[in-house]
Design a protein around this nucleic acid. Structure first.
Length: 259
DNA sequence: ATGGTTGCTTAGCAA
C-alpha cells in the first residue's frame, strides 16, 4: 500500500499537476492540504475518473483538506470534535478498510508573538487530545499532513539562523514530541537518516534553487504499521518545473499482506 | 540590500 501526503497550495491552481501526479504515482491513499477551495470546486469527477474515491473538507480561500483512496472510504469525520469553536478546515479523518487515515493541516503560526502562534500551539495540544480521545496506539493508524514543524536540526537548511522561526522553535518541537508520544513514528526516518532532505521550500528568495528548505510534511504511523513500512521518499522533482506547489509530496509504502 | 513569490481575491492577507 502506497500512501502519500501533499500540500498542493490551491487545488485549482494545481489541478493539472495533481491529476498527472496521480496517474504517474498511483498512490493507494493521498492526503491533500491547503485546497483553498470549497467542496463544490474540488475536481472530484476528474479524480474519480482515475479510479479514486474522495472525501473533501473544503474552505473558501484558506485551508481545506481531502483524502483520496483507491478503495472504499468510510466513516468520514471532520475537525477536532472537542467543542471549541473552529472556523478552519484543517482535519479530516476517514476509515479505509482496517486502516484509519487522518489528514491534517497544522496552523503555520505566522510569527512567534502573534495570536496565530498561540493558536498553533493550542491546536497541537488539541490534536494530541483528539488522538487520545478517539484512538488507541495499537490501531493501524496513519496521521499525514503538513505539520508546519521541522522536528530536528537535520530537517532545516539553517538551524542556527532559524532557531526562532515558527517552524523550528523549541516550543513547537516540544509539541511534536508530545504528539508522537501517542505512539506514532515518522515513516521517512525509518529509511533515511541524512540531513538536507526537505519537503517545503519558500517561493521567495529563490528558496528551491538555493536549497533552502525544511522538512515539515509527514506520514506518521502507529507501530503496527511502522513495522511494515518498506520504503519512504520525498518526490522532490514535483517541486520543479512550471507552477509547482511550494511543497513536494511525501510517500511511504506498507506491506499489508495477510497476517 | 530588511526585499524577494504565489494564490485568492481584487488591495490585502496568508504562507
Amino acid at each position: 500500500m502506497k500512501v502519500a501526503s501533499w500540500n498542493v497550495n490551491s487545488v485549482a491552481a494545481r489541478r493539472d499537476r495533481l491529476l498527472a501526479w496521480l496517474g504517474k504515482q498511483q498512490p493507494d491513499v493521498l492526503c491533500l492540504q491547503e485546497l483553498k477551495a470549497v467542496d463544490e470546486a474540488f475536481p472530484r469527477e476528474a479524480i474519480e475518473a482515475l479510479g479514486y474515491q474522495c472525501a473533501v473538507h473544503g474552505q473558501r480561500t484558506y485551508n481545506g483538506v481531502a483524502v483520496l483512496a483507491k478503495s472504499a472510504i468510510e466513516d468520514v469525520r471532520r475537525n477536532l470534535d472537542d467543542g471549541e469553536p473552529e472556523s478552519d478546515a484543517r482535519l479530516l479523518s476517514v476509515r479505509i478498510g482496517e486502516l484509519r487515515v487522518i489528514c491534517c493541516y497544522v496552523p503555520n503560526g505566522q510569527t512567534l508573538a502573534s495570536d496565530k502562534f498561540s493558536y498553533k500551539l493550542r491546536w497541537l495540544d488539541r490534536l494530541h487530545a483528539y488522538l487520545q480521545r478517539h484512538h488507541d496506539p495499537s490501531e493501524p493508524l496513519l496521521l499525514c499532513g503538513d505539520f508546519n514543524i521541522a522536528p530536528e536540526d537535520r530537517d532545516c537548511y539553517d538551524p542556527e539562523g532559524l532557531r526562532d522561526d515558527v517552524l523550528m522553535h523549541e516550543s513547537v518541537r516540544k509539541k511534536w514530541r508530545t504528539l508522537l508520544s501517542f505512539g506514532l513514528v515518522d515513516s521517512y526516518r525509518l529509511h533515511v537518516s541524512e540531513p538536507g532532505k526537505y519537503s517545503w521550500w519558500d517561493y521567495r528568495m529563490l528558496g528551491f534553487p538555493k536549497g533552502r528548505g525544511l522538512r515539515i510534511d509527514f506520514v506518521l504511523a502507529t507501530q503496527t504499521l511502522a513495522a511494515r513500512c518498506s520504503s519512504a521518499a520525498i518526490d522532490r522533482d514535483e517541486r520543479k518545473g512550471k507552477q509547482p506547489s511550494d511543497h513536494a509530496p511525501v510517500l511511504a509504502s506498507f506491506e499489508l499482506g495477510p497476517r
